[in-house]
Design a protein around this nucleic acid. Structure first.
Lengths: 233, 233
DNA sequence: GATTCTATCTCGCTG
DNA sequence: CAGCGAGGTAGAATC
């Protein structure tokens, strides 16, 4: 099932040169060096080289590739010590990925045409639309005034006022939230209180499907509020 | 280049039954429904089905699969309206992925053996080891007393005391940090101050390679400190 | 390019 | 199983 390494290399390089998607399955070692560094001993893996400069190394397990390079990298095929050697580099940050194939079971080249765009629903953006269309879902009398309003601590998802004229900061999450989301909301509320030189009251409301116990306690400690709401669909 | 759909389906199913990694390249539509939902119109994509129940749908661009299922899913091959139809399901949460192939250019089956483990260096754990071996890198006189010390707000990376007997909370990050890390440290410090009924001073120190401007301001506002330190390697 | 935040995040660990 | 935090997170939007 093994193939002549030189012929294999030519096939891989021809695919890369043609702007095709190239896959290589075989026994290999993998070295990575960059933001971190890693070593992976011999094993059977599927290498996917994309025409946009992406490289993915997949084992038989897991959603995540065991090693990879992001889009925009340069891939080179080489013969190093008689083995097929794929060398991929990027800059900013400087990172290299090297794969050494002791044997190659298959090389495949695919000419890819894909004009469709993925459409997703049930995102945080959908939840924001839902709140903007029906602000009373947050609270009777709530009036949104701005989205992505800037503060010293970052941009607030929805900024508005309540029925008593108090300022309201709404932080949206599409799923059940933990302590991190409370910290985020607290930063925005604190920043706005600091920025409002008059005595305006600033309320913080976390809008999400649900909240963990620890996050709930943090909300109470900080005097922040929670409203249960799911993204549409 | 197209293949008989029934024959193709048999090949895919045989690979799944044999516990092999199966790839299908061809023109397809993809529907996903679960935590969110998505639709993807016709285009050429590479489908990877792993023996652990993972499914990955890759276009010609990007590190991330355009659609996927995590490990542990059940994959079925079907003939629906004369097309190869891959149906993948999971529970908790209930999620389904459906791929309909208008044409298939290639099916590949790979028997995978991989006994090697990935070893990574330059992680947060490596940074923690570095600090525990040389606590003076944080500050002269700093003495670590515990790692992963529990608080009401979660576990502190390193807990210790300074030369004056004050409590010190160290939050480690392997890379440049933004506002979220400051919020995290602040939650731990606040929780410990609440828990220490005597008048013990609790200091919070963020240890990371560098810090963004906004995070730096947040640190100053909260009376927290920063020490520049990189993970080893 | 740097910063900030979302994500069907995934993954590992711990209770 | 849920919760919590790390990640070479990637990706998008904005400055």
């Amino acid at each position: 099932m093994d193939r002549d390494a030189s012929e294999t290399r030519n096939e891989v390089q021809a695919g890369l040169d043609a702007g095709e998607m190239v896959t290589v399955f075989g026994r290999c070692r993998v070295d990575y060096d960059g933001r971190a560094s890693s070593e992976l001993g011999p094993g059977d893996r599927l290498l996917v080289l994309k025409p946009d400069g992406t490289a993915l190394v997949h084992t038989d397990e897991g959603h995540q590739p065991v090693n990879w390079q992001p889009p925009g990298c340069d891939h080179e095929s080489r013969l190093t010590d008689g083995e097929l050697h794929i060398h991929s580099t990027r800059t900013t940050p400087e990172e290299t990925l090297d794969m050494y194939f002791a044997s190659v079971a298959a090389v495949n080249r695919y000419a890819v045409t894909d004009d469709s765009e993925l459409s997703v629903s049930g995102t945080e953006a959908d939840l924001r639309e839902r709140v903007l269309e029906s602000p009373s879902l947050v609270e009777s009398g709530f009036e949104p005034r701005a989205t992505e309003r800037g503060t010293a601590a970052g941009a607030v998802d929805i900024y508005g006022v309540d029925g008593d004229g108090n300022a309201v900061v709404v932080e949206l999450k599409r799923r059940r939230v933990g302590p991190d989301a409370v910290g985020q909301l607290d930063r925005y509320v604190t920043a706005l209180r600091r920025e409002s030189h008059d005595g305006t009251t600033v309320r913080g409301i976390l809008v999400a499907p649900s909240v963990t116990e620890q996050a709930s306690e943090l909300l109470a400690e900080q005097g922040l509020e929670f409203v249960a709401l799911e993204p549409p669909e």
